[in-house]
Simulated assay, not measured.
Amino acid sequence: MGLVGKLEAEILILAPADKFHEVWGGRPHHMSSVSPGKIQKVDLHEGDWGTVGSVIEWSYVIDGKNHVAKEIVEAIDKENKAVTFKVIEGDLLKEYKSFKAIVQTISKGETTWVRWTFEYEKLNKEISTPVKLLGFVIHMNEELDDHLIQA
C-alpha cells in the first residue's frame, strides 16, 4: 500500500454550477450556516474571501468529534469552476504529510456535477484512506445543493 494517494468522487447536483462554485470560490464562510451540523465556523486568517493566497480555518465535526483545518487557497479557476485548498495546519496533518482538496463544478449537458479530489501523502502505511472525510464533504455538498435550490 502506497503512502501517496488520490481519492475522487462526483455527485450530481440540481443547483447551477456558477452558484455552487461561487460559494466555494468566494464565500466558503457561508458553509457554517448552510451545514451547521458539520461546519461550526469558518474564519479568515489572512487575505480576503475569494482570493488566492487567503488562509482559512475550518472548525468541523465528524462522528461527534471536533476537528480543525487551516488551509491556504492555492488556486481559484473561474473558467473551470475549480478551487484548490492546501492544508497547512490542523488535525489532518497528524495523519498526512500533505493534503489538498480540490472542488470542481462541472456542467455536462443539462446536468451539473461536483467533483471532489483529495490528493494526500500518509505519514505511514497504517493511516487509512480518507474515505470518511470524502463522505463528509459529499453530504455537506448535498446540504449546499438543497440550500441553493431553495434560495
Rank of each mutant, 00 (worst) to 15 (best):
L3Y: 04
L3C: 03
V4M: 08
L7R: 01
A9D: 11
I13C: 08
I13R: 03
K19P: 07
F20S: 03
H21E: 05
E22I: 05
V23R: 09
G25Y: 04
P28E: 04
H30V: 10
H30Q: 08
V34T: 07
P36V: 07
I39G: 01
H45M: 12
E46A: 09
G47I: 09
G47K: 10
D48H: 00
T51D: 08
V52P: 11
V52C: 09
G53Y: 00
G53L: 10
V55A: 01
W58S: 07
W58K: 00
W58Y: 15
V61T: 15
G64Y: 02
N66A: 10
N66P: 14
H67E: 13
A69W: 11
I72C: 10
I72R: 09
V73A: 06
A75D: 15
D77Q: 09
A82M: 12
V83Q: 13
V83H: 14
T84C: 04
T84L: 12
I88G: 03
I88V: 15
G90H: 10
D91F: 10
K94S: 14
K97W: 07
V103F: 03
V103K: 05
T105C: 15
S107M: 11
E110L: 08
T112M: 02
V114H: 09
V114C: 04
W116A: 07
T117I: 12
F118C: 01
N124W: 01
E126R: 11
V131T: 12
L133G: 14
F136R: 06
F136A: 10
V137D: 02
I138Y: 01
H139W: 04
H139N: 08
M140R: 01
E143C: 00
E143V: 02
L144K: 05
D145K: 03
H147A: 06
